[in-house]
Amino acid sequence: MSNVIPETQVIDRRTIDAVLAGDQAAWDLVVKRFDPLVWAAVRAYGLSAADAADAMQGAWLRLVENLHTIHDPGRIGAWLFTTARREASLLRRRNQGERLVADPVEPGGADEHAPPDPALAVLAADEGRRLWQTVETMHEPCRSLLRLMAASPDAGVHQLAGRLGMPAGSYGPTRGRCLDRLRSMLTVQETTA
């Protein structure tokens, strides 16, 4: 598995000061650092590429409008991840038929008061690798299902179910059970580590 978040690419106070001073190159660094994270966050909601792009743009626009509230550069990733998830969740609700002409917004500052998102603990590259090592020890159909899910982000349920040899109606519930199982295995690792 590739290391998609180079740990050396740290966004520090100096970078943020440059961003605040209007330095586009410094902003581009921030985007480069967190782009894969924000994209993964929104794509996990089963959004089309166009909707995912929309949700992602919302997260970046919110960061632009809240730049002056950043006190701890170490929390930008957490804030972006949480904000992107929120936008994606709203879009999915909309796509599922809820009427939200303009989405409700409750933008907050990009500061350390935002509650930490539990997912952030596993966002470090090492943890991602460990997660996949755990997946590789899972029984079928979970191992194949999770591999396929990661490898085919644009595939529909029918396609995924077909490739796994299961009825389309079984894919969602099976995926849910596999994710539950993965969570349990991680918890066991946690308590025995």
Partner: peptide, 25 residues
Amino acid sequence: MMRPSPTLDDESLIAVLRLASGQDP
């Protein structure tokens, strides 16, 4: 390093799996 929490929701797990696999640029 912090360990994953059991409160990870499905979307977080999927995001982390996809992010680590690097197959959705």
